[in-house]
Design a protein around this nucleic acid. Structure first.
Length: 289
DNA sequence: AATACGTGGGG
DNA sequence: TCCCCAAGTAT
C-alpha cells in the first residue's frame, strides 16, 4: 500500500466535515460516530450540530431525560442508539469525570460502543495508532489488497489483521490514513458505480490488476423493511415524537392494522425502554410524564 | 453465525 | 415501483 498516494488524495479531496475539525472534542467525535452507524452523512450533519449546541459535554446530556434525547434524535433511525448514547453519557459523567475515555477497552465497555466505534474514537479523537475497520475500509481492502469485487462476510479478527498490515508505521500518519481509507470507500471505491478513474490507488489496485473480477463470495442478504416490526415500531415511536406529551392508546392503534403485530411491537418498545406507560394508561417517551 | 434493529435517497 | 445501501451493535 502506497501511503503517500492516499494521504495526498486526502489533502485535496476530503470533505470538510465538522467532526473532523481540530476544534472538535472527543465527545463531538463520539456523537458523530454513533450517529453515522448505518446512517448517511447528509442526514447526520444537521442533527450533530443541534446536539453539540445543546449538549456540549456528556454531563449535559446525562441531565436531560431519555425522551428529550429521543426527540432530538428525530428520524435518524435505530433510536436505541440514542438511548445507549444517553446511557454512555451518564457513565462518562459519573465515572470518568466527564471525559470520553481514550483506550479501546474502556470505550468498548460503554453501551452502544463496539469494536468499530471504540477504535474510531481512539484514532480520530485521540490520534492513537490502531486499525479502524468499517464497511468502507473492508470494501477498499477487499479490492485494493485482495483483488476481489467486494468484501465477503465480516470476520473481526481477519479484517483487523488486514488493516493492521497496511497501517503506516508512524503514529502521526496512522489516524489520517484510517480516515482517508474510509473516505476513499465513501467517495470513490463505493459499493456501486465506483469512480476508479479518480482513484489514487488505481495503478496499484489488485482488483484493477486482476481485471476487475465480479464479487465471488456468498450472496448478501438485503433486509426487508416494509411490513416488518421495524416499520411498525418506527411508526409507533413517530407518534410519540410528534406529540407534546403522553398520548392515549387509540392514537397509537391507528398507525398499523394488524393488531397482533402492533401489540407485539408496542410491548417490545416498552421492553426496550423506548416507550413508557403512565399511571393513567397513556403512552409517552421515557421520562416525559 | 445469523438476525433484529429505522429511515430515506438514488438508480 | 422496487431494490440496494448508508462510519454497526447486541444478542
Amino acid at each position: 500500500m502506497n501511503h503517500e498516494l492516499l494521504l495526498g488524495w486526502w489533502d485535496t479531496a476530503a470533505r470538510d466535515l465538522p467532526w473532523r475539525r481540530p476544534s472538535c472534542t472527543a465527545w463531538g467525535v463520539l456523537i458523530s460516530e454513533i450517529m453515522l452507524q448505518q446512517t448517511p452523512v447528509s442526514r447526520v450533519e444537521p442533527i450533530w450540530h443541534e446536539w453539540l449546541a445543546r449538549w456540549p459535554v456528556p454531563s449535559a446530556m446525562a441531565a436531560s431525560s431519555q425522551g428529550e434525547v429521543l426527540r432530538m434524535w428525530g428520524k435518524l433511525g435505530y433510536p436505541r442508539r440514542a438511548m445507549r448514547l444517553h446511557e454512555a453519557a451518564t457513565v462518562i459523567a459519573r465515572d470518568f469525570d466527564d471525559v470520553v475515555p481514550s483506550d479501546i477497552e474502556t470505550l468498548e465497555s460503554l453501551p452502544g460502543i463496539g469494536s468499530y466505534t471504540a477504535r474510531a474514537v481512539a484514532t480520530f479523537a485521540y490520534g492513537q495508532k490502531c486499525a479502524v475497520v468499517d464497511t468502507n475500509v473492508r470494501r477498499v481492502v477487499a479490492r485494493a489488497v485482495h483483488g476481489a469485487g467486494d468484501a465477503g462476510p465480516p470476520s473481526t479478527k481477519r479484517d483487523l489483521r488486514d488493516v493492521e498490515a497496511i497501517l503506516p508505521s508512524s503514529q502521526e500518519d496512522a489516524a489520517v490514513f484510517s480516515a482517508a481509507l474510509m473516505e476513499l470507500g465513501a467517495l470513490i471505491c463505493t459499493a456501486r458505480n465506483q469512480k476508479c478513474a479518480d482513484c489514487p490507488l488505481f495503478a496499484e489496485c489488485a482488483w484493477q490488476l486482476a481485471g476487475r473480477p465480479a464479487y465471488a463470495g456468498p450472496e448478501k442478504k438485503v433486509q426487508k423493511f416494509a411490513g416488518t416490526d421495524r416499520q411498525v415500531r418506527g411508526r409507533l415511536l413517530d407518534v410519540l415524537r410528534g406529540a407534546p406529551g403522553p398520548v392515549p392508546k387509540l392514537q397509537l392503534d391507528v398507525v398499523w392494522n394488524d393488531i397482533t403485530q402492533r401489540e407485539k411491537c408496542l410491548v417490545s418498545l416498552l421492553d426496550d425502554g423506548l416507550v413508557e406507560q403512565t399511571r393513567d394508561g397513556l403512552f409517552a417517551l421515557p421520562g416525559e410524564h
